[in-house]
């Protein structure tokens, strides 16, 4: 399962995407992904917000993740 990183999320992790190595280790839901990230990278806890997109649409905590989904971390946006 691959997770795309943008903006400050890319700086925090130090790369533009990462994978969960084995499928059995992949988080099952958006909330689980979020929890795991905050544990591994405490800097995520300090952001104004951290949204998650699944298949290029905003996904709330309850959304289940499955192999093949395109997942992205969306730190606070600042376009315009």
């Amino acid at each position: 399962m691959e997770v795309l990183l943008f903006g400050i999320a890319k700086d925090i992790v130090g790369k533009s995407s990462f994978r969960f190595n084995a499928d059995e280790l992949a988080p099952g839901s958006v909330s689980e992904l979020r929890e795991r990230l905050k544990r591994s990278f405490p800097e995520f806890g300090k952001l104004s917000s951290l949204a998650v997109a699944v298949n290029s649409a905003y996904a709330d905590d309850a959304v289940q993740l499955k192999e093949g989904d395109e997942i992205a971390l969306i730190p606070p946006v600042s376009g315009g």
Partner: peptide
């Protein structure tokens, strides 16, 4: 424009003389 700034996944980094900052990232 208001809704674009709230929802569209685009990120702006401001580059100053001695630092650079991702806008709105921190409270």
């Amino acid at each position: 424009i208001d809704t674009l700034k709230e929802r569209v996944p685009i990120w702006k980094k401001e580059i100053f003389k001695n630092k650079s900052v991702w806008v709105s990232a921190h409270p």
